[in-house]
Design a protein around this nucleic acid. Sequence first.
RNA 1: GCCCCCGUAGCCCAAUGGCAGAGGCAGGCGACUUAAAAUCGCUCGAGUGUCGGUUCGAGUCCGACCGGGGGUACCA
Length: 991
Amino acid sequence: MSQAPITPSTPTASANETPFRYTAAMARDIEIAWQDRWEEEGTFNAPNPAGPWAEPEKVGALGQKLLVLDMFPYPSGVGLHVGHPLGYIATDVYSRFHRMLGKNVLHALGYDAFGLPAEQYAVQTGQHPRKTTEENMTNMRRQLRRLGLGFDNRRTFATIDEDYYRWTQWIFLQIWDAWYDADAVRADGAKGRARPISELVAELESGERAIPDGDGRAWADLGSTEQAKVLDGFRLAYTDEAPVNWCPGLGTVLSNEEVTNEGRSERGNYPVFRRNLSQWKMRITAYADRLADDLDGVDWPEKVKLMQRNWIGRSHGARVTFPVVLGTGETGGIEVFTTRPDTIFGATFMVIAPEHPLVDSLVPEGAWPEGTHDDWKGQHAAASATPKEAVAAYRLAASRKSEVERQTEGKDKTGVFTGSFATNPLTGQSIPVFVADYVLMGYGTGAIMAVPGHDERDFEYASKFSIPIVRVVAPTAEQADMPLTEWFVGDGVAVNSANDAVSLDGLGIDDAKARIIAHLEAGGIGHGTINYRIRDWLFSRQRYWGEPFPIMYDEDGVAYAVPEEQLPLTLPDVPDYSPKTFDPDDAQSSPEPPLSRVPEWVNVEMDLGDGRGLRRFRRETNTMPNWAGSCWYYLRYLDPANHDALVDPENERYWMARHAEPVAGAPAGTRDPGGVDLYVGGVEHAVLHLLYARFWHKVLFDLGHVSSEEPFRKYFSQGYIQAWAYTDSRGQYVPASEVREEPGKDGEPTFVWEGQLVNREYGKIGKSLKNSVSPDEMYDAYGADTFRVYEMSMGPLELSKPWEIRAVVGSQRFLQRLWRNVVDEETGAVRVADVSPDQALTTQLHQTIAGVREDYEGLRFNTAIAKLIELNNAVTKLDVPPREVVEALVLMLAPVAPHIAEEMWARLGHDGGVAYAAFPVSDPAKIVESQVTCVVQIKGKVRDRVDVAPDISEDELRELVLARDKVRAATANGIRTVIVRAPKLVNVVPL
RNA sequence: GCCCCCGUAGCCCAAUGGCAGAGGCAGGCGACUUAAAAUCGCUCGAGUGUCGGUUCGAGUCCGACCGGGGGUACCA
C-alpha cells in the first residue's frame, strides 16, 4: 500500500501567503483523494471466515470481531439533511477506533427501498418506483461517500434487489412452514419453540396430537381444505378474516403499530376504519413471553426496553366466569379477565363491550325489569322503551363513533343496562350487566367484572349510574368500613372478603390473589392466567411496491408455497402501479391490490410434484410491508454474495457470536444472547422495527438458521439534531438561512427576515419548516472532517441538540490548529521535531490517551474531542511541536476526522495509513505529577490549599494540614474529625 | 392522567459524593491588515430550576414541586 500524501491544491491567488493552510478547499482535495484511495484499496473490507468471500487467514490475523450496525436508511427523494448522518458518523468513529485496536470490524450500509413513501413519491413524479428509488439511492450514496464513512462497500444492497428479496421470501416461507410448540424444550431448558409444520402433520397423523375441534376425527378423514384450515390455525404466518385497520386514503390495510392513538395512519395522517377482511398475519403473540423476558439479556436503553414491555403488555391475573341469566331465561356465563382477582368480592356490576357476541343473547324480550333506574335505559327516550331497543341504539351509536370521537369524549362514561343480571360467584349477589364502550372488545375477554371501590373507571361509572360501591381493600384491617370517597388502589389488606368457603380478610394483596385463584381453580369458577396486550402482526399490504408473497392458491383456495427453486418470485411490471385511490373518508371502500390487475402474473399452471399433475393456481396479490426487508438485513451484510443460504452458518456464528459475559445488569444466570455488537439508531423504531426483527430472529433461531438468540445485543438510541425555524406574522415559515439575528431594544435578540420581524420556533429539520441544511453545504463550506468533528462534539449522542451553523467554525479552527502543528502554512514543511515533551506535557498526553480511549469506547465523543482540543492547545503553545505528542494526537483524531488524519500521518512520514495503525497506549508510569494541589476544607468549605507530593501518606498529610495556620485558627476549640483523601483533599471538622 | 428522560455561564455542553469549568460558540480587549474578513493571542462570564432531606462534604444521592422533551392512554 502506498500512502504518499496528496499534492496540496495549487495556490490560486498570488497574494495567498498561506497556500498550505487547512481551508475548505484544501479539505475537499484531501478528502476526495483519500476517499478514492480507500475505495481503490478496499481499506474497509472485512474478511469473512467462510462462504463465498472466505478469507480465513485474514480473519486469523486480526483480533476479535466487531459487528457495527446503523439503521437501514430509507432513500428519500429530497436527499439528506445534516441531522441524518449523526448516527452514521458515530458508528464510523466507533468502528474506526476498534480497527485501530486490531479488531475485525464489519460496518456496512444498505437501503430499505421498498415501501409506501417510495411508491408515493413515484406516483407524484409519474415515474416507476424502481427508477425514482434508484435515483434516490444514487444521490444518497454520493452524499454519504463524501462523508468518508468506512463502509465495506462490497456488502451493500437494497431490499428491492432480486437477490435480496429472494431470501426475504425464503424466510417468509420458513415462518409460514412453522408452528409454535409451547411445550417443546429449547437447548437452554426453557419451553416453547417454533418447529417445522411437517412435524406437526406427523403428530396429527399419528394421533399423538388431537385435531383441534376435530370432533375426534382422524387426520386422514379430513379433506385437503379442512387439513389446510387446521394447519392455518398453527402456522406462524397465516391468513385470517378479522377486523383490520383499513385506510382508504392509502389504499391499504395497516398494522396496529402503524395506527396512531387518534385512529389515523401514522404515515399521511389519513382516517383508519375497522373492517373485516382476510389478511396475512404473523403469530408474534406466540413469542410474547420470550420477547418480553429476553429483554433482560440485551444492552439497551431502559426506556426502550420499557416501551417494548408496555407494548407486549403482559399482565398476570385470572379469568373468572360469572353465571348469568340469559334473555331466554337459560343460564349462561360471562368470562372476564381481571388483574385483581382479590377484589371479586367487591364486584357490584359487570360491563361487556358493545361488540361482544354475547350481547344479543343477554338482552331479554319485553320490558325492563321491575325497578330499573331511568338513567340505565339509555340517553334517548324514544329508544329506551325496552332493553332490546335501548341496547340496539347504544350499539349502533358506539359502532358509528370513530376513534377520534371516543377520544374527544374522554372519560365521560356512557352505557346501557342489558336487562340481565349475573351472579357474583363469591358473594352470590345478583349484579346488573351493562353494555358500555369503556370496555374494549380487543382486550382481555371483552367483558369485565366492575369493582368500583378499587378501579377508577368503574368508580366513575358506578357514581354516574348509582351503583353500590363496596370496599374490599383497606390500608389496614381497622379501616375496613371507612367510606370510599374515591377508588382505592393503594397497598393494603383484604376486608369484607369472606364467604362460607373462603376468606381473604387480613391478607395482603398478593397473598389474597394467590388464595382466591386457588379457590377459583378448585371450584372450577376460574383460573390464574396471563394476558397480553400485543396482537398478531398484520403483515399484508395492498400496494405494488413491496415483496410479493411466495404463496399461491389452488382452485379450492388452499395455499401452497412457491417452490424454493422458483424464488425470487419477482414483482411484475404493471401497466399502472399506482394504488386504487379512494376518498380517505370512504369507510365502505375495499382494498384492491395492484397485482390483481395483472392476470398473466396472477394465474399460473404448475406441477408441484405432489402426484396431482399440472394444476392451475392463483398467486397471492398482496405484498409484504416494508418491515419485512428490514427484519433481517443485518444478517445479509454478513454474507451478501451467498447464493446457497441467507448467511453461511459459520459466518453467522462468527459475526453474531455470543459474548463470554452477559451484558451489564443482566439477572444472574442470563446467557449472553449474541447479536450485533452495536446498533445505533433513532428511538422512533423502538417498538415496531426492533420488535419485528427480534421476532423473526427468534423464529430463525428456533428453526436452526442462526445461532444467536437476539439480533441486537447492544442498541444505542441516538438523539436528534433539531433546528430553529421562523414564522412570519401570518404564521408562514420563512427560509431559516435568510433570517438574521439582531439585538432588540431591551437587549433580547430579535429575528429579522426581509426587513420584517419573525418568530423563532424549535423543531425537526425538514422541508416543511424551511430549516433544512444539507451535508453538501457543509462539505463546501468546511469539508467533511470539520462537519464530522462538529456533529460529534455537539453534546452527548443520546441527547437531542440544536443545529447551530455559527458554531461549526470552532471545529474547523481546531483542525486548523492541529494541522498547523504538523504543517507550515507557508512552506508546507513538516514542523514537528524529535524533541522530548516536558514532564507536564507527557503526563497530559498519557492522561489524554487513557481518557480518549474510555470516551470512544463509551460513545462519549464530545468529551473525547474536548480532551484532544485541550492537548492540541497545549502543543500549540510550543515553538517546536514534539513528534511523540503530535503523532499520538493525529492517531487519536483519526476515528473522528479520518481524512485530515491520514494526510497528516502520511506527511509525518508514515506508510500504511491510519485506518489500521495501532491506537496509542497510555503508560500509567508516565502519568507522574511532581506536585499535587491538596484542597483543605474546613467543615466542607475550601479554606486553604497546599502543594504536596502525589504519594504523600494519609498520616503525613493529616499532620501537615493540621499544622497550617488557617486550620489551627479554625480548630482552636478542638477537632471533631478529619477526613483525609490523600493526596487531593483534607476536610477538617472542628468541634 | 400515568411512565421515562432532561434542567449547570447569553448558547451548546464538562465535572468516580471532594477546588463548580474540560471543550466549543457568542461577547470584550489586543495582534496581523491601508482597511475588512479570515486567522492568532488574551479575557469576561454561572454557584448548578425551586424547596426540603441524607452526608464531614451534594451539580451529583433521596423526597416534593416548577419548567422542557418523549412515550402511552378507558389495557380491566
